[in-house]
């Protein structure tokens, strides 16, 4: 029961973050929203493994966490800086 409640909380958070990722006024809102969606999905996978009694799902979550981090780092590395300042002004 507790598991279902936590999963529902994750689902609501993900829906709010998808709205933020699509509407978000600046690009950094979107980057943060997508990163948080990744974190919540990692949390969901860990919960799923915990509820079904399969501890190996934690390994998958760790790998996803690394990929999520690398993806965010890549976005920040490749994002063209002049455009970012223009977007913040709008």
């Amino acid at each position: 029961m507790m598991f279902v409640a936590v999963l529902c909380a994750c689902a609501i958070c993900i829906i709010m973050l998808v709205v933020r990722a699509s509407k978000g006024p600046s690009a950094f809102d979107r980057i943060l929203a997508v990163n948080s969606i990744g974190t919540l999905i990692i949390l969901g996978i860990s919960l799923h493994g915990f509820a079904l009694g399969r501890p190996e799902f934690v390994d998958i979550s760790i790998l996803y966490a690394i990929l999520n981090f690398l993806g965010t780092l890549a976005i920040l590395r490749f994002y063209p800086v002049p455009d970012a300042s223009e977007e913040n002004k709008q």
């Binding site: 998808v18 990722a21 699509s22 929203a33 997508v34 969606i37 996978i45 799923h48 799902f57």
Partner: peptide, 26 residues
């Protein structure tokens, strides 16, 4: 589909793949 900003589309497609990966784990 409805978004016009390319950076948002790239970010959302990253979120799309992570969600699809979660379905595969499920």
């Amino acid at each position: 589909m409805r978004n016009k900003r390319l950076i948002a589309i790239v970010a959302l497609s990253g979120a799309y793949s992570l969600t699809a990966a979660a379905i595969f784990v499920n």
